[in-house]
């Protein structure tokens, strides 16, 4: 079997598992929707203000929703022994981990991208800004999954891992937040989002290269 078909097999497996455990997947999506919808209630309905805070609110909510789904990434595989078998497979563990991260993004990142415009309308964003918002999330959510995977792997089987993972990964999410929310803001203020988006893309490329490697190292430590 080629490396690519092994990768696809892992993606397919995780998607199947997620599909049969829908409630967990939907939980983080609903969390995203609810958190974003709470902000106008807390701040007030002035559209000018809402339009101004929309990019930040949507992005922070996306960060938190991703965070919520990170525990699912490796914990179950660790508990039922699948992770051990993956580490013992005669294929690079980084490839399998890459497949798992990709599946994680498909399940918990992509839905956020797709629902974001609906929530953006609540904040009176224009159609152009909505497009930029989707684009920034499309580049940004895989980045969140990749960085989050490192945190999830490091806290695997650790006391209080659920809270710890947010302490470890949220500071690392700062650049993604700044460039992601910044892209939308820059577009709204007429400065053009290209600079922000290309920086976000650059970070994504960097993370695709480094994160599976660090995650693999962390997983091997957890399995010792």
């Amino acid at each position: 079997m080629s490396a690519f078909s092994v990768f696809l097999a892992v993606v397919r497996r995780d998607l199947l598992v997620a599909l049969r455990r829908k409630s967990e997947v939907l939980t983080s999506l609903f969390f995203f929707v609810i958190v974003v919808s709470l902000f106008p209630l807390g701040i007030g309905p002035e559209m000018d203000l809402l339009r101004k805070i929309a990019p930040g609110v949507l992005w922070v909510a996306a960060l938190l929703a991703t965070m919520l789904s990170l525990n699912r990434l490796f914990a179950n595989d660790h508990a039922d022994g699948s992770l051990e078998q993956m580490a013992l497979a005669p294929v690079p563990l980084g490839l399998l981990v890459g497949g798992k991260i990709f599946a994680h993004w498909l399940v918990s990142g992509l839905p956020l991208v797709l629902i974001a415009p609906v929530l953006g309308i609540q904040f009176d964003l224009g159609s152009r800004a909505l497009g930029v918002l989707m684009l920034s999330l499309l580049l940004g959510t895989p980045l969140l999954s990749l960085i989050g995977a490192i945190g999830a792997a490091l806290t695997l089987g650790v006391r209080g891992g659920g809270v710890l993972v947010s302490l470890l990964t949220l500071p690392l999410y700062v650049p993604a937040l700044i460039f992601g929310a910044g892209a939308v803001e820059a577009d709204i203020s007429g400065m053009g989002a290209a600079g922000h988006l290309s920086l976000l893309g650059g970070l994504l490329a960097l993370a695709v290269f480094f994160a599976p490697w660090a995650t693999t190292g962390a997983l091997k430590i957890a399995l010792e």
């Binding site: 079997m1 497996r13 199947l16 993956m86 399998l96």
Partner: peptide
């Protein structure tokens, strides 16, 4: 994987090992 069928488990386990 508890959610997968016996057949799927077997195929996936083999696929992961190449």
């Amino acid at each position: 994987k508890e959610e997968l069928t016996a057949r799927e488990n077997l195929c996936v386990g083999a696929a992961v090992s190449g």
